[in-house]
Nucleic acid binder design. Structure first.
Length: 604
RNA sequence: GGGGUGUUAGUUAAGCUGGUUAUAACGCCGGCCUGUCACGCCGGAGGACAGGGGUUCGAGUCCCCUACACCCCGCCA
């Protein structure tokens, strides 16, 4: 028998043989996806990343090969040689290669396989814990193989798109200087510099701006970023950004380039035409109507801000509302149409849901024929005037359910934003996972430059300190910082933030005023960002850019339920790698070399 | 730091108001079978019920704590 690999080279993948190959001799390599042993004939579904082909071993053809085939088990890695034969009447329409099969004349078992911890099949039937522990087996499954192939395609298309548009792919350091603010950094102790630490880059932000100063006026990079923050369904501690920066541009120029990329990706990957230009919405409108800056626009269910209405009526006889107004809180309502018909029990469940997010409760009212409220804690005390005003503001109709939140602005927004999405899923307006075939792209634009930090009683940069304020707002920089809006933008798709960026502040004079408004002294600014401030004084061009969350893009493109399904080797919610056991212990000598001493007691 | 869901053969699940030997399917092992494709048939092995503590005559089942996984709040400029 000739040797596989050295003498018998692979001629085809397991996904490409068709009728036209009938009669040809082929060599296939792959894994045993399934076996059906009939004694005199053994059927094997042979799988590689391209697909599955049925291979038949018949006793009458080659008794020795047939005997060996009898040893085959799931996930054995094998090579076969044989002849392509039409299956005629026995064709399997569920298989892409179902019209043919290969009658094997040679077989080599490259490697046997112990019983796997779970069956390698398309529709997985095991815990995510097991999948992550044996990730290389999980990755053998066709859905994940397709996802990673899509990911590779997105990489490829992105590189071509930017390269064709005269962008340069330039790299930036992962190990840099720790800069305060923003995401928590992973730290790397320096062996050569006792007591000093590198920080892993949370993004290439500063370096890409310095590329602009250096004159590389169109930059992009598909780059890994590191953030030591708690994980979520759409957040991993290391993730990939499509990072872009351009000189001599305004916001519209950035949108133009990015929309072009998105349209291309959706067309090439999904065959879907995305209309341009994308919708735009001011940040304040998004907060008011949806409670966050990443609204899912596949459904309506808007919030109604009732703060002013309630204030005008002095709380309308409801003590809780009065207190909320007096404490400078806000009041929001959400109208659930009568058609949704939530039962009392279901509404109580909604209340549990919102309490888990910091809500004190879930005030509700069912609207009766005459506009009266029933099943409501407010029904008895609220004045008819306020009730009517709220009904009118919310467009309430008989049978509708009105839900309310009031109190601290941030909590009300968060609770109502999550409630809105939760309701939409319960009402079947959007699926639990996936796009449902709807792609609602949105630019959220024009946010405030600062947000007030209750703890430190200071104005902090809502994003980063190098975002360009709107020219017409510069007059308020010293007197009323909350009125200063800026050239910042987020790209949102179906409730996910898939990108964000800004036009940068390249004017050193304005930069100094921004730092001052933030209560940052010149010395402090110098010590933290001196290199960038110097650079801005040396002919820095006007510039701006954006970073797209590459993993999230792929997650949405593939309909994956979580970022973990589009990252080949992801971490668990506690940031561990269940396959390798990282993070792990290191020995005392390593720590000594790094001038590091752990504060954790041994055994803890 | 907080709220929620879960953890029973290799895997997925069943196991009721606590009761004697903890079931099933797939996988695995042995045997039979030449047209299966969720192949079929016969036989077999395989379990510290996540860990610890408690209640009880008796705990997979009830209570408490811990660990791990997942979802969310905080956090993520």
């Amino acid at each position: 028998m000739p040797r596989f690999i050295t003498e018998l080279k692979r001629t085809h993948s397991c996904g490409e043989l068709t009728r036209t190959d009938v009669g040809n001799e082929v060599v296939l390599f792959g894994w045993v996806n399934n076996r059906r042993d009939h004694g005199g004939a053994v059927f094997i579904d042979l799988r590689d990343r391209a697909g599955v082909t049925q291979v038949v071993f018949e006793h009458g053809v080659r008794p020795d090969v047939h005997d060996l085939a009898g040893q085959l088990r799931l996930e054995y890695c094998v090579g076969i040689r044989g002849k392509v034969v039409s299956r005629g009447e026995n064709a399997n329409p569920r298989l892409a290669t179902g019209e043919i099969e290969v009658h094997a004349t040679d077989l080599e078992i490259f490697n046997r396989c112990e019983p796997t911890p779970f069956l390698v099949e398309d529709k997985i039937d095991t815990s995510e814990e097991k999948r992550l522990q044996y990730r290389y087996l999980d990755l053998r499954r066709a859905p994940l193989q397709k996802t990673l192939m899509t990911r590779a395609k997105v990489n490829h298309l992105t590189r071509n798109y930017f390269t064709d548009s005269n962008f340069l792919e330039l790299e930036t350091p992962f190990m840099g200087k720790y800069t305060p603010g923003g995401a928590r950094n992973f730290l790397v102790p320096s062996r050569l510099n006792a007591g000093k630490f590198y920080a892993l880059a949370e993004s290439p932000q500063l370096y890409k701006q310095l590329y602009m100063v250096a004159g590389f006026d169109r930059y992009f990079q598909i780059v890994r970023c590191f953030r030591d923050e708690d994980l979520r369904l759409d957040r991993q501690p290391e993730f990939t950004q499509i990072d872009v920066e351009m000189s001599f541009v305004e916001q519209n120029d950035v949108f133009e380039v990015i929309e072009g990329l998105i349209v291309k990706l959706w067309k090439e990957v999904l065959g879907v035409e995305i209309p341009r230009p994308f919708l735009r919405m001011p940040f304040d409108e998004s907060m008011a109507k949806y409670g966050n800056d990443k609204p899912d626009l596949r459904f309506d269910l808007p919030h109604v801000v009732l703060t002013d209405v309630v204030a005008q009526h002095g709380g309308g006889g409801v003590p809780l509302l009065k207190q909320a107004i007096e404490a400078k809180g806000i009041v929001k309502g959400l109208r659930v149409p009568a058609s949704a018909s939530f039962s009392r029990t279901e509404i109580d469940k909604l209340e549990e849901f919102v309490k888990g997010m910091g809500a004190k409760g879930l005030a509700r009212a069912k609207v009766a024929e005459g506009g009266e409220w029933t099943q409501s804690p407010f029904a008895k005390t609220i004045t008819a005037e306020l009730r009517q005003a709220i009904n009118q503001a919310m467009g309430a109709k008989p049978g509708d359910l009105l839900l309310f939140q009031f109190g601290k602005e941030a909590v009300v927004h968060t609770v109502m934003a999550n409630l809105r999405v939760h309701l939409a899923k319960r009402m079947g307006l959007i699926p639990e996972y996936g796009s449902g075939g709807q792609w609602r792209f949105l630019w959220v634009v024009d946010p405030p430059l600062f947000e007030y930090d209750e703890e430190s009683k200071t104005w902090a940069a809502a994003h980063h300190a190098f975002t360009r304020p709107r020219d017409q707002d510069l007059q308020y920089l010293e007197t009323d910082p909350g009125r200063v809006y800026c050239w910042r933008y987020d790209l949102v798709l179906n409730g996910f933030e898939i990108g964000g960026g800004s036009i940068r502040l390249h004017d050193p004079v304005v930069q100094a005023r921004v730092f001052k408004a933030m209560g940052i002294s010149d010395e402090e600014a110098r010590s933290k960002f001196g290199f960038l401030l110097d650079a801005l004084k040396m002919g820095a061009p006007p510039h701006g850019g954006i970073a797209l969350g590459m993993d999230r893009l792929v997650m949405l493109l593939t309909g994956a339920e979580s970022l973990r399904d589009v990252v080949a080797w992801p971490k668990t919610q506690k940031g561990t790698d269940l396959m390798t056991g990282a993070p792990g212990d290191v020995d005392a000598k390593q720590l000594r070399d790094l001038h590091v001493k752990s504060t954790v007691e041994p055994g803890k």
